[in-house]
Amino acid sequence: MTDARHELVAAGRALSAAGLSPGASGNLSVRVGDLIYMTPTGARLEDLDPDRLAVLDARAPLREGHTAGPPPSKEFPLHRAFYRRDPGTRAVVHLHSAHAAACSCLPAWSRRSALAPLTPYFVMRVGQTPLIPYAAPGDLGQAHRMEALGFPFRAALLQNHGPITAGDTLARAVDAAVELEEVARLTLLLKDTAPRLLTTEEATDLAHRYGSPWEGAVD
Results as ranks from 00 to 15, higher is better:
residue 60 A to S: 12
residue 198 L to G: 13
residue 89 T to F: 05
residue 73 S to H: 02
residue 101 A to P: 02
residue 56 L to Q: 05
residue 139 D to H: 12
residue 136 A to W: 00
residue 77 P to Q: 02
residue 61 P to H: 09
residue 157 L to N: 08
residue 36 I to M: 12
residue 83 Y to V: 08
residue 185 R to E: 14
residue 8 L to V: 06
residue 192 D to P: 08
residue 128 Q to A: 08
residue 4 A to P: 02
residue 204 T to Q: 03
residue 22 P to Y: 01
residue 201 E to T: 15
residue 83 Y to L: 14
residue 215 E to K: 08
residue 203 A to M: 05
residue 31 R to E: 00
residue 66 H to Q: 09
residue 164 I to V: 15
residue 3 D to C: 08
residue 179 E to D: 13
residue 111 R to D: 12
residue 70 P to R: 09
residue 72 P to R: 04
residue 172 R to E: 11
residue 133 P to R: 13
residue 140 L to T: 06
residue 131 L to N: 03
residue 115 L to A: 03
residue 65 G to M: 05
residue 64 E to P: 08
residue 163 P to Y: 01
residue 100 A to V: 00
residue 14 A to E: 14
residue 61 P to V: 12
residue 119 T to H: 05
residue 68 A to Y: 00
residue 39 T to N: 11
residue 60 A to K: 07
residue 186 L to H: 07
residue 48 L to D: 10
residue 195 P to K: 13
residue 218 V to A: 14
residue 123 V to M: 01
residue 128 Q to W: 12
residue 50 P to H: 09
residue 139 D to N: 13
residue 118 L to Y: 14
residue 209 R to K: 11
residue 189 L to H: 08
residue 171 A to R: 13
residue 165 T to P: 02
residue 50 P to Y: 12
residue 16 S to P: 00
residue 61 P to E: 10
residue 214 W to M: 09
residue 127 G to S: 03
residue 136 A to F: 01
residue 81 A to E: 01
residue 122 F to M: 05
residue 2 T to N: 14
residue 77 P to G: 09
residue 40 P to E: 12
residue 80 R to H: 07
residue 110 S to I: 10
residue 32 V to Y: 04
residue 14 A to G: 05
residue 79 H to K: 09
residue 137 P to L: 12
residue 55 V to P: 04
residue 51 D to E: 15
residue 19 G to H: 04
residue 95 L to G: 02
residue 110 S to T: 08
residue 31 R to P: 01
residue 26 G to S: 11
residue 95 L to H: 04
residue 184 A to S: 15
residue 176 A to T: 05
residue 125 R to L: 15
residue 204 T to A: 14
residue 144 H to P: 02
residue 155 A to D: 05
residue 183 V to L: 03
residue 164 I to L: 12
residue 97 S to V: 07
residue 27 N to F: 04
residue 127 G to T: 05
residue 216 G to P: 09
residue 169 T to K: 01
residue 177 A to Y: 04
residue 18 A to L: 05
residue 91 A to P: 10
residue 53 L to R: 08
residue 195 P to L: 11
residue 191 K to R: 15
residue 94 H to G: 10
residue 137 P to K: 04
residue 44 R to N: 10
residue 150 G to K: 12
residue 101 A to N: 05
residue 97 S to F: 02
residue 217 A to W: 13
residue 61 P to K: 04
residue 201 E to A: 15
residue 11 A to N: 10
residue 209 R to P: 00
residue 9 V to F: 08
residue 164 I to T: 09
residue 51 D to F: 06
residue 165 T to C: 15
residue 25 S to Q: 09
residue 24 A to T: 14
residue 143 A to L: 10
residue 128 Q to C: 03
residue 174 V to G: 01
residue 163 P to M: 01
residue 61 P to R: 03
residue 133 P to C: 07
residue 126 V to M: 00
residue 144 H to D: 13
residue 93 V to E: 02
residue 33 G to T: 10
residue 75 E to C: 02
residue 141 G to V: 06
residue 133 P to D: 09
residue 171 A to G: 10
residue 188 L to N: 03
residue 10 A to V: 07
residue 12 G to L: 08
residue 26 G to F: 02
residue 87 P to I: 00
